[in-house]
Structure formats: structure tokens, C-alpha cells
Simulated scan of single mutants.
Amino acid sequence: MRKLYIICCVAAFLACGRSPEEDKYVSIIDSLKVENKDLQQANDTLSEHLLKKAYIARNYPKYFDTIPEPEEFILKEISQEPGLIPKEAVLGGTMRFTEVSFINDKLITASYEEGHVMGEAVYSYSMNKRGQLQFSLVGIVKE
């Protein structure tokens, strides 16, 4: 009886091991966890730089050569598109852009507010063939 009990325990113990297919999926999950951790660290670093405004390059595209105040020009242009603001106003307010800073020749940050709610977002920009700026929301920096 005792031998039968030991044999059953050993058989149960051996049956609890992982199959090769399970090992493959565990390996994939582990590599995804590492990749996720690396991406989170990169995101945190970028967010930290953006919040400190350590990114400002003053490297304007050629089409701003004739414009004396490029940030003011961009602010005026993006202000004409309040639908780009990723937050809704509260208490009957109106969201508006308040400040713009260049990151590089393709990206800007724009601050927005309405008195109660404020935030900052990253936008890509380009000039079309008619000389009009086009903007696209890339991501929210802070809410």
C-alpha cells in the first residue's frame, strides 16, 4: 500500500511539469514583460523631458525663415482649430490654446485651458502646398 502511495505521488509530481508548448508561451510572456518595462521607462523619460521643457530646440523649418515670431504664428494658427484640444470645457467655459513651444521641425507642444481645466499636448505640424499649417494630435503630456 505504501509503495502504491509513493508511486502515485511521484506520478502526480511528474505530471505537474510544463509541456514544451507551455514553456514557449511562458518565454513569450517573459519577453513581452521585459519589452513593456523598457517602453514604460522610455515613456517616463520622454515625459520627464517634456515636463521640464528640456526639449526646446529652436530648430524651425525653412518655411518659418520669414516669420519674425514663429511661436506666435503657430499659436495663432492652432487657435483656429479648437477641436484639436483633447479635453472638454466645464461650467460653460471655452477651451483655448495659450502657449506653443517647438520640439523640433515636426513637433510642438501646446498648452490649453479654459479657466478651470488645463493641460498640454504634443502635436505634429506641417505646411500644405497652399501655405496653411496642418496639425495632428500626437499625445497628451499632462492633464
Rank of each mutant, 00 (worst) to 15 (best):
L84F: 00
E88M: 06
I108C: 04
A110I: 03
T109G: 04
I103S: 01
L137G: 02
T94G: 07
V141Q: 06
Q134R: 15
I103P: 00
E99W: 13
S124K: 14
K87N: 08
I140R: 13
P86D: 00
S126I: 04
S124N: 07
N104V: 01
I140T: 07
L133T: 03
R130H: 13
G131L: 10
G93H: 10
L133W: 08
S101C: 05
E88F: 12
K87H: 09
F97K: 03
S126H: 08
K106L: 02
K142M: 05
Y125R: 11
E99S: 06
G119F: 09
F135L: 00
V117H: 06
I140H: 07
L137N: 04
N128E: 07
T98L: 01
Q134G: 03
V100K: 01
G83L: 07
P82W: 07
T94Q: 13
A110G: 03
G92I: 06
V138G: 03
E114M: 12
G83F: 09
E99N: 13
M95D: 08
N104G: 00
A110C: 02
K142G: 03
V141F: 04
V122H: 06
Y125P: 02
S101R: 14
V141K: 12
S136E: 06
S111N: 13
S126C: 02
M95E: 10
A110R: 03
M118I: 09
L137R: 11
Y112N: 01
R130N: 12
R130L: 05
G93Q: 06
T94R: 14
L91C: 11
G131K: 14
V141S: 08
K106W: 00
E99A: 10
V122I: 03
V90I: 12
E114G: 05
R130K: 15
L133R: 11
A110P: 01
E114S: 14
N128R: 14
Y112M: 03
E120Q: 15
E81I: 09
V117W: 07
A89D: 08
T109F: 04
G93L: 09
Q132L: 11
E113S: 15
M127E: 10
I140E: 08
V122W: 05
L137M: 02
G131T: 13
V122K: 11
P82A: 03
G119M: 10
T98N: 03
E143D: 13
T94P: 01
L84W: 00
Q80N: 12
E88S: 12
H116V: 05
T94I: 08
T94D: 11
Q134K: 14
V122C: 04
G83S: 12
R130C: 02
F135E: 00
R96W: 11
S136D: 11
L91R: 15
M127G: 09
D105W: 08
F97A: 01
Y112V: 00
V90A: 09
V117P: 03
V90Q: 12
G93T: 07
G131F: 10
Y123M: 07
E81K: 15
T109R: 11
S136A: 12
T109D: 05
L91K: 15
Y112S: 04
K87W: 05
G83C: 01
M95Y: 05
G93R: 14
G83R: 13
E143S: 12
L133A: 04
K129A: 09
E88V: 09
F97E: 01
A89K: 05
P86S: 00
V100Y: 07
G115P: 12
Q132R: 15
I85M: 01
T98I: 08
